[in-house]
C-alpha cells in the first residue's frame, strides 16, 4: 500500500513537477479515508507514509510560479489541459490582472472592475474556482444569489465559461490556439458525445428529409 502510494506520488512528481499539490491532496485524502476503515496499526503505518510524502514537496517552491497546471474539470469528455502558468505570466508581462481581474494584488485592467477594485488587496485564493463555481445555474446557486440583496456580482460565469471566455477571448486577439481540439483532446466518451472519430456517422446513411 505504502509503496503504491509513494510510487504513484513520485511518478506524478517526476512527470509533472507542478502536479504536486494535486497529488499531495489526493494521497492525503486517500489515506484519511483509509484510516477510517482500517485498524489503528495499519493507519499509523500509512500515516508515516503520508508524513514522508508531505515533507518532500517542502523543498519545492510554494508560489504559483514554476508551474504547469493540469486543468481537468472537464476530464469526462476530454483529456486534461496542460496549462503553462509561467509562460502566460510572461505573455502578460507580469500583470496578473489580465486574467485574475483583481484577486492577485495587481490593479485591474478591465474598466468595469476599476470603480470598486482599484485598490483591492490580494485575495486569499486567486484560483479561478474560488469565485467561479462549477454549477452556476443550480437551484442552490440561483437561490444564493437571489437571497443576498447586497451581492453585486449576481450573475458570474461558471468555471467552464470563465476559463473559455478568458482563454479564448485572449487567444483570438493574440493568435493563440482557438480550435476546440487544439486544447481538448477527446476521450472515447467525448468521441461518442460528439459522434466523431470511431463513433462518426457512416457516410451515405442520411435519413433526413427536409
Amino acid at each position: 500500500m505504502l509503496g503504491k502510494i509513494a510510487s504513484h506520488y513520485f511518478a506524478g512528481k517526476s512527470r509533472l513537477l507542478h502536479e504536486k499539490s494535486l497529488y499531495e491532496r489526493l494521497a492525503f485524502s486517500f489515506i484519511l479515508k483509509r484510516r477510517e476503515k482500517m485498524g489503528l496499526k495499519t493507519g499509523k503505518l500509512i500515516g508515516l507514509a503520508a508524513l514522508i510524502a508531505m515533507t518532500a514537496p517542502l523543498a519545492l517552491p510554494q508560489k504559483a510560479s514554476c508551474e504547469v497546471f493540469e486543468l481537468n474539470s472537464l476530464a469526462n469528455l476530454f483529456e486534461g489541459v496542460s496549462f503553462d502558468h509561467d509562460m502566460h505570466i510572461e505573455a502578460v508581462s507580469d500583470n496578473c490582472s489580465v486574467c485574475h481581474h483583481h484577486s492577485a494584488g495587481t490593479p485591474p485592467t478591465d474598466a468595469t472592475c476599476i470603480p470598486c477594485h482599484l485598490k483591492s488587496a490580494e485575495t486569499d485564493s486567486a484560483a479561478c474556482n474560488a469565485c467561479h463555481v462549477n454549477e452556476p445555474f443550480s437551484s442552490a446557486s440561483l437561490e444564493a444569489s437571489a437571497s443576498n440583496p447586497l451581492l453585486h456580482h449576481k450573475v458570474k460565469p461558471g468555471l467552464k465559461a470563465a476559463y473559455h471566455q478568458n482563454c479564448l477571448g485572449c487567444h483570438q486577439e493574440t493568435g493563440g490556439p482557438v480550435g476546440c481540439q487544439d486544447c481538448h483532446a477527446l476521450t472515447e466518451k467525448g468521441e461518442k458525445y460528439y459522434n466523431t472519430g470511431q463513433f462518426a456517422p457512416k457516410p451515405g446513411k442520411s435519413s433526413s428529409h427536409h
Partner: peptide, 10 residues
C-alpha cells in the same frame, strides 16, 4: 435523438 448526419465537430 437519432445519430446526426455529420459529426458534431464538423
Amino acid at each position: 435523438l437519432p445519430e446526426p448526419d455529420k459529426p458534431f465537430d464538423d
